[in-house]
Amino acid sequence: MSKPRILVVEDSSSIRQWFVSVLTSSAEVATAGNGLEAINQVWTAWERRKPYEAILMDIVMPVMDGLTAVKEIRRLERQQWPDGSRCCSIVVVSRLTDPEDILQAQYHCGADGYVTKPCAASTVLQTIANLGIDLHQARTQRCRL
C-alpha cells in the first residue's frame, strides 16, 4: 500500500524539519514555506493526479497567511469538484490560541482540525489518523515541537 501524501506548510525551516522527521516513516512528505507556495503545490499535485491527502498549515507566515490559503484551496476545490466533495483534509497547526482564530479556521475557512503549538508528535499523528488517513506505521516517538 502506498504512503499517504502530506504537505507541510510552515515558514520556519526548523519546524518544517521537525514535521518531516515525525511524518517521514509513515507518509510521503512535501513542504512549502508560505500559503502561496502551498496553493501552487496543491494545484500542481491535482494536475498530476497525485493530490495531497492532508495539509498541515501554519497561520502566521510571510507572503500569504495560512487561513487565506485554506480558504483559497477550498474555493479551488469547489471549482474543480462542484459536487462539494473535498479532496484533502487540512489541519491548522498554530501558536495562536485565541477562540476567534480557532472558529475562523474551522467554521469559515474550511479546516478540518486545529492543533496548538507546541505539540507532541503523537498529537499530530493522532489528529491526522482521526481524519481517516492511515498512518498505522507511524513511529510513536515522544518528541515535542
Binding site: I102, L103, Y114, T116, T127
Partner: peptide, 19 residues
Amino acid sequence: ALKTIKDLGLHLLVSEVGG
C-alpha cells in the same frame, strides 16, 4: 467551550469541530 477554556486558563491541544 472556547470562551470557557480561555476564561479558566486551560491548555487546548486539539480542536476538531464543525462540519
